[in-house]
Design a protein around this nucleic acid. Structure first.
Lengths: 217, 217
DNA sequence: GTGCAAAGTTGCACGTAGTGTAAATGCGTG
DNA sequence: CACGCATTTACACTACGTGCAACTTTGCAC
């Protein structure tokens, strides 16, 4: 296993860097601190920072990356005969607990003012999309006939988009509220989003696919 | 109006910059040239470049931006009672001609080796997504009941994802081939992608693309 | 423990990105 | 022509990201 001194030190340094980056994000706001600030706060040299991350964004995006890696792990555990949409839903359900969601929620609220996600964060989501594509390809290959690339890519992309949409709506509505009621709403939003996708968005302007859907504005 | 000497000069300079950027992209490959190179090629100063674009990526992404602006324009012309998915499909159909697609296809093939899209390019797609969301919101508001934010965001995001997926598959299959047969395949891919989305990806591993999936105009 | 090799850290130098500022140049109008 | 305004340009400055060559720490054999 990875319990040598070297591994531990590296992990600690890595964690120290993201902690420092988050601290500075909290105190100074996005874009108002430099790599040197992070390095100083973490007690390392500027050069060492770049040995771990390629940018400030990358350091912060490790939060998102961790969450999505977790999600992919859950996703891969789902039975191969389960529909992709349901696998995605179940994987996300497993992560809708306070401890897992908290870092992501804080990162989101702190970076809300900057319109678009950072490059590194988008990279993390895209990596997740590729993983989903790979799993879907594997499941399709097990069945009959040839694998349809369009189907795989469109499906994986849409799943990611809907997952993002659900989280965005939740963050927008609830901010960093991690109460049981709020998390229940997140779960419902994720379920609704996958249901919308599974039903082809057939509902009109007032869909409410699951009766107990959303709403609490 | 926009025909003063100043306006013309500005437009010419802007075009000159993107042309220079594309020339260098062709000759040196992505990432192997600097802002100064572009400025020199375009015959302007480095500082002037930054008066027009915030980065090399942004200069190149103006190609994508132009295409998507065009798409949005078509999209907004669709009747308000038409389903969003069909509006999207029709808008894209209108752009599947050689002259419009060529620049995008070349940009794509030239930047294919770098895995993820540039930040500016993603920004362009995201801007398009927001426009779709806005149109969908407008249409939903015209109907009965309250507007469901989740529905809007999930739908717009999925439409973009499926459009991207169709184009990626086409680019991957046909490279920069702009023959009528190739463009017909692009149209079919776009139709199929929207059909997949509209049917909730219910098809199994072999959705059998060709004739059955199409239906439009 | 001692010695050694591999892994990790650090300082330094270099080229590039992006921005503020003020001077210079070009354009439109009286 | 001369004036007001928009645009371009040179210059300076901060910050990013990387290659490189010490230097320090860790793991391991003896």
């Amino acid at each position: 296993m990875a319990t040598s001194r070297r591994e531990l030190n590296k992990a600690a340094t890595r964690q120290g860097i993201t902690d420092a980056a988050l601290t500075l994000l909290r105190s100074k706001g996005p874009g108002n601190f430099t790599v040197e600030d992070i390095a100083d706060t973490a007690g390392i040299s500027r050069r060492t920072f770049f040995n771990y991350f390629s940018s400030t964004d990358a350091a912060l995006a490790s939060v998102t990356h961790g969450f999505l890696d977790n999600a992919i792990q859950q996703f891969k555990l789902r039975p191969a005969n389960e529909p992709i949409l349901q696998s995605a839903q179940e994987a996300l359900m497993a992560l809708a607990d306070p401890m897992t969601v908290a870092p992501l929620a804080e990162l989101f609220t702190l970076t809300q003012q900057s319109t678009l996600m950072s490059h590194s964060e988008l990279e993390a989501w895209d990596h997740c999309r590729e993983q989903i594509t790979a799993v879907a390809r594997g499941r399709a290959a097990a069945g009959p006939g040839a694998v349809d690339e369009l189907y795989l890519r469109a499906l994986a992309g849409s799943v990611i988009s809907c997952g993002k949409a659900a989280m965005e709506v939740w963050f927008t509505r609830r901010g960093a509220d991690l109460s049981p009621a709020s998390l229940a709403e997140l779960r419902q939003l994720l379920i609704d989003a996958m249901a919308l996708l599974g039903s082809g968005f057939t509902a009109g302007s007032t869909p409410a696919p699951s009766p107990s859907a959303s709403r609490s504005s």
